[in-house]
Amino acid sequence: MTGRAEQGRTGQGRPVDGGHTTGAGPGRVLVAVYGIFALAAGARAAVQISRQFGEAPLAYTLSAFAAAVYLLLAVALGRGMRRLALVACGIELAGVLIVGTLSLVDPEAFPKATVWSGFGSGYVFIPLVLPVLGLYWLSRRR
């Protein structure tokens, strides 16, 4: 709880004024992480799809979809579009849980890794933590 007290001291507990509140303070860091994941997943998907799409169409399509969701979240949080961010966070959480489970239950369907395979184990499980953090952050900045 000390964190909260300090935030008050630095003037971060400023009143909610609609607009950019979800992209300020700690939200700024979330936007940065989502931006990097959009870049990472997007570049990965672009390379995979352009070179060997036939090898694992489902996995590669999911990679691209994940990248799109991350990009959407970075923009929505940065611009203070709360409802859109909330929906995207939900999709992201569902995606990582469903794909993570499927990739363990049915590895055949995911011969090539996506960001969400194994609950994001290839990315130190950050993809699993991110949507939870995002939802928590959105619930705090109501």
Binding site: G11, A24, G25, R28, V31, A32, G35, I36
Partner: peptide, 21 residues
Amino acid sequence: VAAFWGVGERSRWGPAVIAVA
């Protein structure tokens, strides 16, 4: 990009953006 995004936040969370990068 991180520098641009971090400088825009004049609080403790500015350097946190740099940490992500």
